[in-house]
């Protein structure tokens, strides 16, 4: 379990993390989501005692990280895939880390095999792809078989197979009762991986809730309807609490009425409907909604630019 209380980090005039408090529970995957520069990595470095907080405190399994008698066996972290001397081989890197805690060589081999690095373990890290570097970082995090695992952007640079592997790994680790804290700026990945979500923007916690709640908390359920008589259906559906948007000639988006209700109205009035799809607000939309005021680096459409700054979701 990780507990942050009023955790603050100020660099000169810039507040990277502004008094955040949260708890990461054991037995589930907690996602740490936020745009670039939101303070995710700074928060994680403070958890690991690498950066000291300007104010506030953070404990892991009840104690500040540095107070643990065997830190590697309590908390494993991937903070940065580049936290390695690149002229050393992957095996020797892990061996040197393991030596600090008398972790046996057999365990070093085990994590190498587990992370799929067997073929490159005796090669210098210099030649590793970003994905291989991530795997090595994850191997280092698992070395001490820790109760708490912190992974900063673990799927960065991984191929699709690696992404699925990380997803399954963290779910498995959480199912064993471990605390898993995972940061990402990819909401789609979080939607598939995390059970619980802490959303941070500009150094402040914007949301801290189960992932389902964050998704459903955003607006009402909507339904996509295709019909060859859109005008007539709009008239029929019009009523209290129902709003209809016209998207294309024969495509409507209805909110305030469930698909069954829409189908019944259409059937009773002999209107042909050829698509009826319940729409769930995506985590992406929920996230955009949550962070729209908190994004550090806004994209703007500059004059003459032909590319829209933000891809349309419709």
């Amino acid at each position: 379990m990780i507990e942050a209380k009023g955790l603050t980090k100020v660099y000169g005039e810039k507040t990277a993390v502004g008094g955040v408090s949260f708890t990461v529970q054991a037995g589930r995957v907690t996602g740490f989501l936020g745009p670039n520069g939101a303070g995710k990595s700074t928060t994680m470095r403070m958890i690991m005692g690498l950066d000291s907080p300007t104010a506030g405190s953070v404990t892991v399994n009840g104690e500040p990280f540095a107070q643990h008698k065997a830190p590697l066996r309590e908390i494993g972290a991937l903070l940065d895939a580049k936290a390695v001397h690149t002229s050393r081989t992957a095996y020797n890197h892990l061996l040197a880390m393991a030596a600090t805690h008398s972790i046996p060589t057999s365990r070093v081999r085990e994590v190498i095999e587990m992370t799929g690095l067997s073929d490159v373990a005796k090669k210098k890290v210099k030649g590793f792809s970003l994905g291989m570097g991530q795997r090595l970082g994850i191997a280092a995090a698992l070395l001490g078989d820790p109760q708490t695992i912190i992974l900063d952007e673990p799927v960065n640079g991984l191929d699709p197979e690696g992404v699925v592997w990380v997803r399954n790994l963290v779910k498995y680790l959480a199912s064993e009762g471990r605390t898993v804290f995972l940061s990402s700026h990819l909401m789609s990945e979080m939607a598939l991986t995390a059970d619980h979500l802490i959303v941070i923007g500009r150094g402040k916690i914007i949301a801290d809730a189960p992932i389902a709640e964050i998704i459903t908390g955003k607006g009402q359920a909507r339904t996509r309807v295709r019909t060859d008589q859109p005008e007539r259906l709009m008239q029929l559906l019009a009523g209290t609490g129902v709003s209809v948007e016209v998207h294309e000639r024969e495509l409507l988006e209805v909110s305030g009425l469930d698909p069954r209700g829409i189908a019944r109205t259409a059937l009773e009035n002999q209107v042909m409907v050829y698509e009826l799809t319940p729409l769930q607000a995506s985590l992406e939309e929920a996230y955009m909604e949550l962070t729209k005021d908190e994004v550090e680096y806004h994209s703007h459409i500059t004059t003459g630019a032909s590319v829209p700054a933000q891809a349309g979701g419709k």
């Binding site: 470095r45 690991m48 005692g49 690498l50 990280f65 540095a66 643990h68 830190p71 590697l72 972290a77 903070l79 940065d80 580049k82 936290a83 390695v84 001397h85 690149t86 890197h93 880390m97 600090t100 805690h101 280092a140």
Partner: peptide, 12 residues
């Protein structure tokens, strides 16, 4: 190289 983060995370 960033190795320091590994070193001092293992031995805070």
């Amino acid at each position: 190289t960033g190795m320091a983060r590994s070193t001092f995370a293992a031995v805070p």
